[in-house]
């Protein structure tokens, strides 16, 4: 797979093909597998994503600690806000839904990770539903998201323990923004700007889960990550460019991650996990878990 987004964008534009087509061809060559087999695997992933969105929106799932759950459905059934009835609100609901399923030990696609698994399905399936986009184009978009994620994995990191939440929900936002821009008709170069615009908005984001569990704030950080992706998509499709190329924004994420104090890398030693309420909730709920066991 590609190590720089700039090379992938240049190759796609020179050949007059989409980034998803380029990603599928490259993966097929790398793995020595037929291209259709890669598409089939991505289609299966999409079906799991759809299942997780639907399951989470039922609203009856709770994590083992009880700290998270039931909130996705509130965006469907709760009182309206200023964005009621928009794709924006629907995307937020879907992001919460997938992450609530994850916290309740349901089946999800770790894309790129389990902790950041809500952003990509929320943005892609939410916008596809709003715009009436067919399944095959969403499968293509997943290939583009995979290409962007592979570049992030090579240049920076996709692990909260290594790079903080910017490497999980931040990377997911970059992947989702780029993939959705292609799905909605943007050029490869616009995909690059969307990725850069999303990822720049999550630079420095720490990984600070209460008790070290993928629950709080992870569930909500997937929703806000999806919101950042939507902002980037809207800007990139409007023709807005970001002066720092996506590869360099990704490198910056890696550099910030490497210099991030260990307290902010999934250890529950800092951030929200270390607040008085964070510590109290973790202690009470984890104690509860032990007592139940």
């Amino acid at each position: 797979m590609y190590r720089t987004l700039a090379d992938a964008i240049a190759d796609a534009e020179a050949r007059g093909i989409s980034l998803s087509q380029l990603a599928l061809e490259t993966e097929a060559a790398d793995q020595g597998r037929p291209l259709e087999e890669i598409r089939d695997a991505l289609r299966r992933a999409l079906h799991v994503m759809n299942g997780a969105v639907a399951r989470g929106l039922e609203g009856d799932l709770f994590s083992s600690s009880g700290l998270v759950g039931g909130d996705a459905a509130k965006l469907r059934t709760g009182p309206p806000g200023p964005l009621a009835g928009t794709a924006f609100r629907d995307v937020l609901a879907r992001a919460l839904a997938v992450q609530e399923v994850n916290a309740a030990m349901g089946v999800i696609v770790a894309a790129p990770t389990a902790g950041g698994a809500g952003v990509l399905p929320a943005v892609l399936t939410g916008l596809a539903a709003a715009k009436g986009i067919d399944e095959e184009r969403v499968v293509d978009a997943l290939a583009t998201a995979g290409l962007i994620g592979a570049v992030v994995a090579e240049r920076a990191s996709l692990s909260g323990a290594e790079g903080g939440c910017q490497a999980e929900t931040g990377a997911a936002a970059g992947m989702a923004a780029g993939a959705a821009v292609e799905m909605l008709g943007g050029t490869p170069s616009q995909v690059g700007h969307a990725t850069a615009l999303a990822q720049q908005g999550t630079l420095g984001l720490v990984c600070d889960p209460l008790g070290g569990l993928v629950e709080l704030p992870c569930v909500f950080r997937n929703a806000t990550g999806a919101a950042i992706a939507l902002a980037a998509i809207e800007m990139a499709l409007a023709g807005i460019t970001f002066a720092i190329p996506a590869d360099e924004v990704i490198d910056t994420m890696g550099e910030i991650g490497r210099s991030m104090d260990v307290r902010y890398r999934e250890t529950a030693g800092g951030g929200l996990a270390a607040t008085p309420t964070g510590r109290r909730l973790a202690k009470e709920r984890l104690y509860d878990l032990k007592r139940k066991a």
């Binding site: 797979m1 793995q31 991505l42 994590s63 030990m105 389990a114 290939a143």
Partner: peptide
């Protein structure tokens, strides 16, 4: 070499790729 299917996957029971799937 990073594979596209490593990034869009694995399909797994949550909540943590390291603490659950691994």
């Amino acid at each position: 070499m990073v594979s596209l299917l490593d990034i869009i996957g694995p399909v797994m029971v949550g909540p943590s790729s390291s603490h659950t799937a691994g």
